[in-house]
Amino acid sequence: MITAATSGTWTLGDIPVHRLGFGAMRLTGSAAFDLGAPSDRSRSLAVLRRARELGVNHIDTAAIYFSALRSANELINSALAPYPDDLLISTKVGPVRDVTGEWLEWARPDQLRGHVEENLRQLGRDHLDLVNYRTDGRRSVAEHFGALAELRAAGLIRHLGLSNADPDQLAEAQRIAPVVCVQNRFGLGATPAQRAVLDVCGASGVAFVPFFAIAGKGAEAGAEHADGPALLAVAEAHGATPAQVRLAWSLAQGPHVLAIPGTGNPVHLEQNVAAGAIRLTAAELAALDAEAAG
């Protein structure tokens, strides 16, 4: 059985995790942030438990991940509590949705404690392993990150990270408190600006956690791309799917890269975990990059 351990290990803060993790966003429904038909609860719980059986010990979630009758945090709590010592659960704060699912204005710095406490309540924990501040488009992250640093000092948060951040924002946050990861959109065909964040993280020993590595431009709606001949050829050579090759490509970008593919499908979960065992050659990586750039 292929497990997440084949992807390698990175110490996130002071917690060793396998580089192939799991994103919880899609557990709540077929489309992220959809308040229509809820997901099948028993299936979502089974996916989480199977992820753990496959060695996944880094799960990414957020209180904003909910649909009709389903909350990613509540599903995680129900499936996995009491939590094993080797499991790291990361969450994020900043964006706000009301109970109807409507997006509201970004959280103010003084509201972040309430958001952290809501994640604690939903997950059934007395502290959060890792909280990523999702930037709101403004240049400075100092006030928001400073508020989270105070909560870290108070013991409510163990480690801090950033999401949707650029190198300048990372540097600003690092002057306030240690940053253990940056969680950004990144995948095959990444732009020079996206690669710059990857490189800065690698140079400073910060984990880089790409999201939408499979979905690409489709983002929350799911994959919306045509697989080119080079990608299909590499997939055939490895007996893999194009989605698995996309994940393997992401992991090949550096030992500090951690993948968090999300799914509510148990078959896709097994495939995602197995992608951590794929080792692409230099020639294959070059062919994939050339195709994506063309």
Rank of each mutant, 00 (worst) to 15 (best):
T6R: 02
G8H: 08
T11D: 08
R19A: 09
L20G: 05
G21P: 01
G21M: 02
G21N: 03
G23A: 06
A24P: 14
A24H: 14
A24L: 13
S30R: 14
A32R: 01
L35A: 03
G36M: 08
G36F: 07
R43Y: 07
S44H: 15
A46T: 15
V47N: 03
L48H: 03
R49L: 12
R50W: 01
L54A: 02
G55L: 10
H58V: 00
A63E: 07
A63H: 07
F66Y: 11
A68H: 10
E74H: 12
E74P: 04
I76A: 02
N77S: 15
A79M: 06
L80G: 03
D85G: 05
D86Q: 10
I89Q: 00
I89A: 03
V93Q: 10
P95Q: 07
V99I: 14
V99R: 15
G101C: 12
E105A: 05
W106N: 01
A107V: 08
A107K: 07
P109M: 05
G114D: 14
H115S: 12
H115N: 13
V116W: 10
E117A: 06
Q122K: 12
R125N: 00
R125E: 04
R125T: 04
D126L: 01
L128V: 02
L128F: 00
V131N: 07
V131E: 10
N132S: 01
Y133D: 13
Y133G: 07
Y133T: 07
G137C: 13
R139Q: 10
S140H: 09
G146H: 05
G146C: 02
A147K: 02
L151S: 01
R152M: 12
A153F: 09
A154M: 13
I157E: 04
I157Y: 04
R158M: 04
H159T: 02
L160F: 01
L160S: 00
G161K: 15
G161R: 15
S163L: 11
D166N: 08
D168S: 09
Q169G: 04
Q174T: 11
R175T: 06
I176G: 05
A177H: 07
V179H: 13
G189Y: 05
Q194A: 06
Q194C: 07
D199W: 06
G202Y: 01
A203R: 11
A203D: 08
V206W: 15
F208H: 00
V209N: 02
A213M: 12
I214S: 06
K217P: 11
E220R: 13
E220P: 11
G222D: 10
H225V: 05
A226I: 09
G228N: 06
L232M: 11
A235R: 06
T241R: 01
R246M: 13
R246F: 12
L247G: 04
A252G: 05
A259M: 02
A259Y: 01
I260Y: 00
P261W: 06
T263Q: 12
V267Y: 11
H268M: 11
N272M: 07
I278K: 01
R279G: 04
A282I: 14
A286M: 13
A287Y: 03
A292R: 00
G294D: 15
